[in-house]
Design a protein around this nucleic acid. Sequence first.
DNA 1: AATCTGTTATATATGTACTATAACAAATAG
DNA 2: CTATTTGTTATAGTACATATATAACAGATT
Lengths: 128, 128
Amino acid sequence: MLLDIDLSSQEPIYRQIRTQIVSAIATGELSAGDQLPSVRSLAGDLGVNMHTVNKAYAVLRDEGYVVMRGRSGAVIADAARTVPSSKAQEHKVRIASELARLASEFKALGGTRQEFIDLASSQVDTVF
Amino acid sequence: MLLDIDLSSQEPIYRQIRTQIVSAIATGELSAGDQLPSVRSLAGDLGVNMHTVNKAYAVLRDEGYVVMRGRSGAVIADAARTVPSSKAQEHKVRIASELARLASEFKALGGTRQEFIDLASSQVDTVF
DNA sequence: AATCTGTTATATATGTACTATAACAAATAG
DNA sequence: CTATTTGTTATAGTACATATATAACAGATT
């Protein structure tokens, strides 16, 4: 579980951490029950402040991806079962909204419907 | 050309303006040669500062969506011809990257490949 | 009982967003 | 030509998010 943080990115560090952990869950690199490093050790490894990691963990906790277990720290949850359906629904609504926005931009650039679908399909195949 | 600004949104106002104008170009509501309202009048209509609109226009200009013509103000460009191919390429690379991110999140939530493609297809149909 | 966990509190620095006035050069309408 | 309108730039101030830095806390585990 190696995280790649880009300090010069416009995307906040805590967001990069959060997104990369979600990606690791998607790829199966992280599975339900897996233990995440402590906020202090991960912060040390990444060279960032403890609170930056803590914020990423708090977001993951609020989203239902991980659960906190006292001294055992942050543990990956079984998202399909533990992410509240209301939150999962919110996520899917947001994803749908962003898909529409991306399609709109693509069209404004002169792209066709088929080109967009082809692009989406090729990207989907890198994940599933 | 009515813009709907949400002051309580996390998305910056100038970004909302920029995105909605790009969407209007995509839908054909705005076409090459159409004149945008002046930064002052649009700011007045939306109830925001002139510089907020000016920043949105500057972004659209840098992206190649509009051209500035002295007193004629901001005019919609023919994106397919005037957006520099290098910029268009950057846009498409970014769009591909965001598609992969969305697919990854969808999978982390327990969604399947087919469900994601169905969602994407339905959203694409609202644009094209 | 000691230790490690996430959590919370306080403080500071930085960058972005937004507002507010003001003035400028360039293009255009009259 | 002249006055007006355009986007642009400059300066200044407020507000908020991000990230850092110390410090202390309660809870669970070893």
